[in-house]
Amino acid sequence: MSAPPGDAVSRRDRLGLAAAIGALVVVFRPGRSLARRLRPPGALPPAEFERACIRCYRCAEVCPVKAIRFDTSIDPRDSDTPFIVASERACIACMECTHVCPTDALQPIARDLEVISQRVRLGVPVLSKGKCLAWTGKGICRLCYYVCPYPERAVRLVGVRQGPEFSADACIGCGLCEEACPEGAKAIRIDPMGGTA
């Protein structure tokens, strides 16, 4: 090679290189994603999602409420993939993120309440009645009912105490109820299952 020669590769360099490649293989070892988190709306099912997501951060860039954040996990299978922490900032189901994904890891979904209701399932609602203010009779609270984009379908108020009753069939899992649920109670939780319905 006629390019100006630099320093030669020493024995130590070779060992270092082998160690680096070994570390690379160990860190990037094949396997399923470990994350059990709410993915943004329209997300493909878990294994397919990590395969398609190129970690470009576009979904978060268009999110008007900064609900989408990114994994800092050292595990490269999850690293830099988007997720939502509903209790802190829930999805408002505007569907902007689904239209900017360059690899369709988030499938485009029309901004229409009926279409969203059919196709979006971030997770399923799980209510702990023992913590709920209405069900325990500690107070009159209807926050989950008021913030729900599908009142009377995803959540209904039942009984004398007007406690919430959730229906997993109609719930899109946006988590607005989880965000709204009062700090002391946090009775409703969206259990991640990921993917489109």
Binding site: M1, P5, G6, D7, A8, V9, D13, L17, I21, L24, V25, F28, R29, P30, G31, R32, S33, A47, E50, R51, A52, C53, I54, R55, P76, R77, D78, S79, D80
Partner: peptide, 29 residues
């Protein structure tokens, strides 16, 4: 240090193989 010229090709191949096997876009990391 002058490593072999094709080192980056090896890196690319390795990362793509791991991407295919692991099912996660690690080359971009």
């Amino acid at each position: 240090v002058r490593l072999p010229r094709r080192s980056n090709m090896v890196a690319l191949a390795l990362l793509l193989v791991l991407t295919a096997a692991g099912g996660s876009q690690i080359a971009l990391l």
